[in-house]
Amino acid sequence: MATYVLIHGAWHGGWCWREVANSLRAQGHTVFTPTLTGNGQSRHLGNERITLETHARDVLGVIETEELSDVILVGHSYGGMVITAAADRAASKIRHLVYLDAFVPEHGECLADCIRHNLPPELAAIFIGHFFQAKDNGGLVPPIPGALFGQTPATTEWMERQCNPQALATFQLPVLLDGAADALPRSYIVADGWQPSPFQQQAAAISGKPGWTLHRLPGGHCLMMDLPAELSALLAQLA
């Protein structure tokens, strides 16, 4: 049996993994679904001083305090930034990194950079422009409407109900890496059910690279909410 740590994307919380976590636990696996600071049940703590570093430390805190090892660490969307930063510092505790329709940053890149590098300029400008709303919202970026991500109506309604604003600094702080996690096995799961997606290009960039496997599922961006059974089965295969 495996140990999974599932990291949500921007504006979400550990709540989004509910069905996937239940399925994996029913199979006998150990599953942690931490909520990053300022999101989900800790949204009341949201403030402009929260950064990507804060969220990386959230993940490291789970690994350290739960005394975990041989972890399958999964990051969705923005969560790819978080698991990249965390794995670089805790590589000896990680068995496998899984990027779920997620950004895979290089050393020195922030999430805004990843958007610029993976979308046509006119579309990247729209996404980056959304971040500017933080100046009128206490340094917090409102969630992007779920309807843009090709979700089912039920998933979209769930997202609109639960997502909360997130600190602009989490999208602006670059990932600083020393390469400690470079040798870890990695998988990329791309959602094929929505466009325009920056993750199609991200998947193409890693396709065929040594140490990577590529998988596709037909749902919208939030596969853990759109296709929990199919995603759970795929994650279980990695164990």
Score class of each variant (00 low, 15 high):
E109S: 03
P228S: 07
Q133N: 13
F127S: 11
E160H: 11
N137P: 03
F127T: 12
H117S: 13
H107V: 05
T213A: 12
M225K: 04
F171M: 11
D182R: 15
T170E: 03
P210E: 10
A167I: 00
R216Q: 14
K135A: 10
P165L: 05
V190N: 09
C163S: 12
W158L: 14
R186P: 07
D136G: 12
M159Q: 10
L227Y: 07
A205T: 06
G129C: 05
E160D: 15
D178G: 11
G208I: 05
G193R: 09
G193V: 04
V190D: 06
T170Q: 02
D101T: 00
T152K: 04
G211I: 01
E122Y: 13
R116F: 01
M225E: 14
F103R: 03
I128V: 14
H130N: 12
E230W: 09
A112G: 06
G139E: 09
L223V: 00
E106G: 14
P185M: 13
P105G: 05
F131K: 08
C222G: 11
K135M: 12
F199D: 04
C222W: 03
M159Y: 12
L148A: 08
A203S: 09
P196D: 06
Q200N: 14
L119I: 02
E157L: 08
L140N: 01
L227C: 08
E230I: 00
H117P: 00
L148H: 12
Y188F: 12
H117W: 06
A229G: 01
D178H: 15
G208Y: 13
R186T: 08
I189N: 04
M225N: 08
W158A: 13
A191Y: 07
D226M: 05
Y188V: 01
L148T: 11
F132C: 00
L168M: 09
F131D: 07
C163A: 11
I144L: 15
K135F: 10
P196G: 04
Q166K: 00
E230Y: 07
F149Y: 13
L227R: 10
L148V: 09
H130R: 14
R216A: 10
P218W: 08
F149E: 02
A183S: 15
A205C: 03
A180V: 00
F171E: 02
S187Q: 10
K209H: 14
Q195E: 15
A169G: 05
M225T: 06
P105N: 07
I189M: 03
L231K: 03
H215T: 01
A154N: 12
R161G: 00
L140F: 03
F132N: 14
E230R: 13
A191Q: 10
D113M: 13
Q133E: 14
V104D: 03
Q200M: 11
A183D: 15
E122A: 09
A203D: 01
I126M: 15
T152D: 00
E230A: 13
D113W: 11
P153S: 08
P210L: 05
P196N: 05
E230D: 13
L119W: 05
F127G: 02
L214H: 08
A203N: 02
R116P: 02
T213F: 04
G146R: 03
Y188I: 03
Q202S: 12
L123V: 14
A124Q: 04
G220Q: 05
